[in-house]
């Protein structure tokens, strides 16, 4: 299981478990599953998809970064909205 949080300057939009995260990095999408190596990536603009046990959540994000450490995924973005 991945622990995922989606954070904007104003608030935390999502904080919970997920099986898979697909994020729009600056040069294309990156997919993250459990056991991913530590990573930091700049984000571009696009749709962030978080696959939970019950389904999929989508967020529109723009700018910021993505950090993966020990199955913790942190998406810190400038502009975020649930979509």
């Amino acid at each position: 299981m991945l622990k995922v949080s989606v954070i904007s300057p104003e608030r935390t939009l999502f904080d919970g478990d997920a099986t898979q995260v697909v994020a729009p990095a600056y040069d294309g999408e990156v997919g993250i599953l459990t056991g991913h190596a530590p990573m930091m990536a700049l984000l571009g603009r696009g749709t962030l998809r978080v696959t939970e046990a019950g389904g999929e959540r989508r967020f529109t994000v723009e700018g910021g970064f993505l950090q993966v450490v020990d199955d913790h995924v942190r998406v810190v973005t400038e502009k975020a909205a649930t979509s």
Binding site: D27, P38, M39, M40, L42
Partner: peptide, 16 residues
């Protein structure tokens, strides 16, 4: 930690 950096530490810092 030894991060995979996309694109590079420098580019990320200049953004952040």
């Amino acid at each position: 930690r030894d991060y995979i950096l996309l694109p590079s530490a420098e580019a990320i810092l200049s953004e952040l």
